[in-house]
Simulated scan of single mutants.
Amino acid sequence: MNTFNDIKELISALKREEKLISEMFSKRKSINYKYSDALALVDYDENRIDYLIQRSVVRENGGLLELDDQFLEFFEQILDVNEEINLSYIDENIKNIRENIDYFLNENNENKKYSYLRFIKKTFRKMGIITLRSVVDLRRNIENTFKNEANYKNKQLKLENLDTKRKIIENLINHTLKLINEDEITFFNRALDEELNRIIIELKHQLGESSHNLIEIEKQIIDYLNQIKHQGKFLEKLRKLKYLKDHFTIEAETDIKQIIAAKNQVIFETRLSEPLNLSLDFLRENEKAFETIKKIAKNHKNRKQDKPILADRISDEYLESNIESEVMINLEEIRNKFVATSDNLFNFILNYDFHKEVDFDERVTVFCQIISQYEQELVVEDDFQKTNNIEFAIVYSR
């Protein structure tokens, strides 16, 4: 088996065949990738595929190609789409940290002590990310199992196994916190610097977030298992009734007639709603789901669609620009003209030309408005007069 000579050769090979590798990665769960399909993505140059096979980027088996497990795991880890939860990796990191702490405390050479400390920092940094990722993968696997596993017994068994993994992650979190807070106090007193302190604070935050998520996951698993238990009991009873019905012994071996007669209100009882929403990953990647979607779309293809009713053409007269002008009463202008006269205010307004038709009531309103707004500039006499049954005070300008 050949290997890449350096990182530059590896990156160049992945860049050159990015179209093929990207397509194989996206189809890794839905189809078996054929050698003939891969040729179309490398311009029908078999040497390019042989190059990847020789360097274990892809593997060939009976005319089918698949990404090598090492590269597949690398891509899934980097893109955060992996579904396998590697709990042993977290446990191994804890053991490695304990070993290197012992090496650090026993070492007198400063250079070697620094190398041990650097390894401990790097491992602590990885542990928080790996734990968070494991919790996310656990939640994803739980939802996919409950929504996509058709066999009830396998669904229950898988959920119970995932719950066991949840407990393992919880124990690993507790061991990590115990390592930091209790078991290695001497190490942290000797080696604690600003960088290590920052890493430990971030790690505690990540582990705390993971613990809160695990509590929600536990509730979710309990809810799913209860739903499965309820559905399983119902199906079990249904199978027994069907068996008795098929053998024509249901009336002889059960009291079904008496129960139905006494429970005629069952039809009015509310049904237990347990919706099962299909996951987007299942709809995107499963070929059978795609075929079902196409069949449904075909059935709705000939459905009569109501055409929108078009409105009549707008008449041109509605589009014409009509300007409507209105003469406004300017109180300040009236006041200025009144000041220049010796007439009383009411008589002045009664005979004033407003350049539009203004009735007697509106002129009385203008009279009151001017007195209200320009009271300081007017003299209101004690003398009163009466016009059209309206009694008014005599008002002059100062």
Rank of each mutant, 00 (worst) to 15 (best):
A13F: 13
L14T: 02
L14G: 01
K15P: 04
R16M: 03
E17F: 03
E17T: 02
I21Q: 05
S22Q: 14
E23P: 02
M24P: 08
R28D: 07
I31D: 14
N32I: 11
A38Q: 07
D45C: 01
R48T: 02
I53A: 03
Q54V: 00
S56C: 08
S56Q: 13
E60A: 10
G62T: 01
G63E: 06
D68P: 06
D68S: 12
F71H: 14
E83T: 10
I85N: 00
L87P: 02
S88E: 14
S88R: 09
Y89D: 14
E92T: 06
K95R: 13
K95W: 08
I97P: 07
L105M: 14
N106S: 06
E110R: 08
K112V: 15
K113N: 01
Y116I: 02
L117N: 12
F119T: 11
K122M: 07
T131Q: 09
R133S: 15
R133K: 13
L138Y: 14
A150N: 09
N151K: 02
N154T: 11
N154K: 11
K155T: 02
D163M: 01
T164V: 04
K165I: 01
K178M: 13
L179P: 01
N181H: 13
N181L: 10
D183A: 03
E184R: 05
I185T: 11
F187N: 08
F188K: 15
F188N: 15
R190V: 15
D193N: 15
E194F: 12
L196V: 09
R198N: 14
I200N: 13
I200D: 14
I201E: 15
Q206T: 05
S211P: 04
H212T: 04
N213P: 01
I217S: 06
I217P: 01
K219S: 07
I221H: 04
Y224P: 00
Q227T: 08
Q227E: 12
I228N: 03
K233L: 13
L235W: 09
E236V: 08
L241V: 00
Y243I: 02
K245C: 06
D246P: 00
T249F: 03
A252Q: 13
I256K: 01
K257W: 06
A262H: 06
A262R: 05
I267K: 13
S273P: 00
L283F: 02
N286V: 01
N286Y: 03
E287T: 08
F290K: 12
E291P: 00
E291L: 06
T292M: 11
A297C: 12
K298P: 00
K304N: 07
D306I: 11
P308S: 15
D312K: 09
Y318H: 08
E324T: 14
N336P: 02
S342D: 15
F354D: 12
F354L: 12
D359G: 10
F360R: 01
F367K: 01
Q369L: 10
I370Y: 07
S372M: 12
L378S: 04
V380A: 01
E381N: 11
N389C: 05
F392V: 00
F392N: 02
Y396S: 08
Y396F: 10
R398T: 04
